[in-house]
């Protein structure tokens, strides 16, 4: 089983390749969109590279729960409801949602995911 550090190093390689960023930019706390400049099209590339690197399948809805974020039940006034947040936490146990929880504006969700979240997700996926 790969350690978290090994997973991180492989993720780093994938992100450097997919986003053209420098080695030292890929830190655990870096957000994919805000800090590393990922655009929506890059996520397709990142997912593909991670699937190949770790020999896993990543269903889109696991990393990008669009159904929750566009649900009329879970979104009111552009923000996730308490039920929506609890559903999101269930679906994304690997992500640190503490900051998002204080002001869960759907438009801010896109910039939530960090390299650490991705590492946690892959580690769980490969049986860590």
């Amino acid at each position: 089983m790969a350690s978290n550090d090994e997973v991180f190093e492989k993720i780093k390689v994938a992100l450097i390749d997919a986003l053209g960023v420098d080695d030292d930019e890929v830190t655990p706390g870096a957000t994919l969109v805000g800090d590393l400049g990922a655009e929506s099209i890059d996520f397709l590339d990142i997912v593909f590279k991670l699937e190949k690197a770790f020999n896993i399948t990543i269903p889109r809805e696991e990393l990008f729960p669009e159904d929750i974020l566009t649900s009329t039940t879970y979104v009111q006034g552009g923000k996730l409801t308490a039920d929506g947040l609890s559903e999101l936490k269930k679906r994304m146990p690997f992500a640190d949602l503490s900051k998002f929880e204080s002001d869960p504006r759907v438009q801010d969700f896109g910039n939530l995911l960090t390299v650490k979240d991705l590492t946690n997700y892959v580690s769980a996926k490969i049986g860590g």
Binding site: L44, F48, E51
Partner: peptide, 9 residues
């Protein structure tokens, strides 16, 4: 080398 609902490689 890869085929997904959103794109292909």
């Amino acid at each position: 080398t890869g085929f997904q609902p959103q794109g292909a490689f």
